[in-house]
Design a protein around this nucleic acid. Structure first.
Length: 472
RNA sequence: GUCCCCAUCGUCUAGUCAGGUCCAGGACACUGGCCUUUCACGCCGGCAACACCGGUUCGAAUCCGGUUGGGGACGCCA
């Protein structure tokens, strides 16, 4: 392992929430810096004053924190670093690497139009390039890019990529309102923050040569690049809000564990043999840019769900009850007994794919009253079980210890005496105790519910059945 | 349109750099069965792919060329 300094960054622009694609870029940068003992920097690219919002910034920070992708430096805000960019632009101008351009936006638009009509790539024709113009109202500053030659770089995931410089035009580095453009700000920041690796989405491949021009004009070393393949929506086109580009926070609210999301994201594009599940430590230890694939991929919500279910199953009761609490509170449960939440978590975790599902499943245990599911009520709460329920209730009230083991023993004797199968009794009882036809094991349910509630609910079920009989 | 990139089961992928051990492995989904007090979990089994064409080679998923298909970029957005 080299002792090369590693500095990576994640630079979202706060024009919307953080979605899957951004989160994966952040994750890969984070993993790479951790793996190499480097630094991970968060930078907010808010140079577009129109579209940036504080709300989006907050959502991004909240998402990063929830995911646990901690940053070593930042967040830096580009909007507060204009001095740096202006200094760089002025240097470019005085070095003759950039020039003032007076072309109007209308002219440029016309140029683009006619280029397209001729089947050419729309690009600036360089009208002002050698005019030696000075600044003027409404003018911009453009970089003087090479007119010929080849620009190439070795992408750490895609290999060598080369561009003919003729394909590129003189990009704007300072807008007519005086603000720096994306390319300029990115390069200036990456230089000033000492970035050594730029790991970003595939959609930036074409931006790379442009940014390399700026580095060269400034006489600065170019960082190493790694372009991650795009994440596609289910329709195989770019992820959009219509097609699965949900906010990271939406996943949180749907009851996903951050670790599950991170694991799913890691496996989208990166692999380590056949391994599917990784602890965060393993992810860091095993991550490498060489094993990142080149092809774009579709994010699978089903796989995420499976992973989430697995991580829930594997989590401790302690951890789960903590995570579950906000979801229970959202359902209106207040002053929760944490011990009880822990116990219900333990019997629910094997059958919950999300925390939302789990909170739903915990209802029977935490709510004062339950309502019977129509289907279960009709099918199982019948007059034929009244006698059994009453008899059973007397015995449940009488056993010394009210735990699973004791209850099960009581049942064995009871069933033998009545000469019935457990299934004859379990389903009606399940409906009586939980209101539902599906629940954790009936003995587990009883223990978690506690003797008092069990006896009460069986009694209420008996009353309920008798009422139904009268109504008929 | 021009440029850049990509191409293994429905999806994520292993295998491709160092061609034979791959009539292609794993996972998710789907599906048959077992277990069983329900629902799950778990276990056993099934379905299912090297885009196409040509070349190199004794031999190609793997190397080369082309075709097709897909994605991305072409902004005073990032």
């Amino acid at each position: 392992m080299s002792n090369e300094k590693v500095v990576t960054r994640f630079p979202p622009s706060p024009t919307g929430y953080l979605h899957i694609g951004g989160a994966r870029t952040a994750l890969f940068n984070w993993l790479f810096s951790k793996k190499r003992g480097g630094k991970f920097i968060l930078r907010i690219e808010d140079t577009d004053e129109q579209r940036s919002s504080d709300e989006a910034t907050r959502a991004i920070l909240e998402s990063m924190e929830w995911l646990g992708l901690s940053w070593d430096e930042g967040p830096y805000f580009q909007s507060r670093r204009y001095d740096i960019y202006n200094e760089v632009i002025d240097r470019l101008i005085s070095n003759g690497e950039a020039y003032h351009c007076h072309c109007s936006q209308e002219d440029l638009e016309k140029q683009r139009q006619s280029a397209k009509e001729k089947g050419l790539k729309p690009k600036y024709d360089g009208t002002c390039r050698d005019l030696g113009l000075g600044p003027a109202p409404g003018s911009v500053v453009r970089l003087k890019t090479p007119l010929s030659g080849i620009t190439q770089f070795t992408d750490l995931v895609k290999g060598t990529i080369r561009f003919d410089n003729k394909e590129l035009d003189d990009l704007i580095v300072r807008r007519s309102n005086g603000s720096p453009t994306y390319h300029l700000a990115v390069v200036a920041d990456d230089i000033s923050l000492g970035m050594t690796y730029v790991i970003r989405g595939d959609d930036h491949v074409n931006n790379t040569p442009r940014q390399m021009f700026i580095y060269k004009a400034l006489g600065e070393p170019v960082p190493k690049y790694a372009h991650l393949p795009m994440i596609l929506g289910p329709n195989k086109t770019r992820l959009s809000k219509r097609h699965g580009a949900m906010s990271v926070l939406a996943y949180r609210d749907m009851g996903y564990l951050p670790h599950a999301l991170l694991n799913a994201l890691a496996r989208l594009g990166w692999s380590y043999g056949d391994q599917e599940k990784f602890s965060m430590e393993e992810m860091v230890e095993k991550f490498s840019l060489e094993s990142v694939g080149k092809a774009a991929g579709v994010f699978s919500a089903e796989k995420l769900l499976d992973l989430n279910a697995w991580y829930i199953r594997e989590s401790s009761d302690e951890f789960l009850s903590e995570r579950l609490t906000p979801f229970l509170e959202r359902k209106g449960f207040k002053n929760l007994d944490q011990e009880k939440v822990k116990r219900v978590s333990s019997i629910l975790k094997v059958r919950s794919k999300t925390l939302v599902e789990m909170a739903e499943g915990a209802h029977f245990c935490l709510a004062e009253e339950i309502t019977y599911e129509k289907k279960g009520d009709d099918k199982f709460l019948k007059p034929s079980v009244v006698g059994l329920f009453e008899d059973l209730n007397n015995r449940l009230a009488a056993i010394p210890e009210f735990n699973q083991e004791a209850i099960e023993k009581l049942f064995v004797d009871f069933l033998e005496e009545k000469e019935i199968k457990l299934r004859k009794l379990a389903q009606p009882l399940r409906v009586a105790l939980t209101g539902k036809t599906a629940s954790p094991g009936i003995f587990e349910v009883m223990e978690v519910l506690g003797r008092e509630k069990v006896v009460e609910r069986i009694r209420k079920a008996v009353v309920h059945i008798k009422n139904k009989m009268q109504d008929e």
